[in-house]
Amino acid sequence: MSEPLFLKPVFHNKIWGGRKLETAFDYNIPDGKIGECWAISGHPHGRSEVENGEFAGQYVDDLWKNHKELFGDPKGEVFPLLTKILDAEASLSVQVHPDNEYAEKHEHELGKTECWYIIDAEPGSYLIYGHNARNKQELDQMIESGDWDDLLRKVPVKTGDFFYVPSGTVHALNKGIIALETQQSSDTTYRLYDYDRVEKSTGKKRELHIKQSEDTITVPHHDPKLDIVTREDGKNKFTTFVQPPISPYFAVYRWQLKETAIFTHQIGAYTLISVIDGNGSINVDGNDYKLEKGIHLIVPATVSKWTIVGDLDIIASESGEK
Results as ranks from 00 to 15, higher is better:
Glu3Trp: 03
Glu3Ser: 12
Pro9Ser: 08
His12Pro: 04
Trp16Asn: 00
Lys20Asp: 03
Leu21Ile: 09
Ala24His: 12
Phe25Thr: 01
Gly46Tyr: 01
Val50Gly: 01
Glu51Pro: 00
Asp61Tyr: 14
Phe71Leu: 07
Glu77Arg: 08
Val78Glu: 11
Pro80Ala: 06
Pro80Thr: 04
Leu81Ala: 02
Leu81Tyr: 02
Ile85Pro: 03
Leu86Asn: 00
Asp99Trp: 01
Asp99Pro: 03
Glu109Ala: 08
Cys115Ser: 04
Tyr117Met: 07
Glu122Thr: 14
Glu122Ile: 09
Glu122Met: 06
Gly124His: 15
Ile128Cys: 02
Ala133Gln: 02
Arg134Lys: 15
Leu152Gly: 00
Lys154Cys: 10
Val155Asn: 12
Tyr164Thr: 07
Val165Thr: 11
Ser167Asn: 15
Asn174Ile: 07
Lys175Met: 09
Gly176Val: 02
Ile177Tyr: 04
Leu180Ile: 08
Leu180Ser: 04
Glu181Pro: 01
Thr182Leu: 05
Gln184Lys: 03
Leu192Gly: 00
Tyr193Pro: 09
Tyr195Phe: 15
Val198Phe: 05
Lys200Trp: 12
Ser201Trp: 13
Gly203Leu: 11
Glu207Gly: 05
His209Ile: 03
Gln212Asn: 11
Ser213Pro: 04
Thr218Met: 13
Val219Ala: 13
Leu226Cys: 10
Lys235Met: 14
Lys235Gly: 14
Pro245His: 07
Ala251Pro: 01
Leu257Phe: 05
Leu257Arg: 05
Glu259Pro: 07
Thr260Met: 06
Ala261Thr: 05
Ile262Phe: 13
Tyr270Cys: 09
Asp277Thr: 12
Gly286Thr: 13
Lys290Asn: 11
Ile308Pro: 00
Leu312Gln: 03
Ile315Asp: 00
Glu318Cys: 04
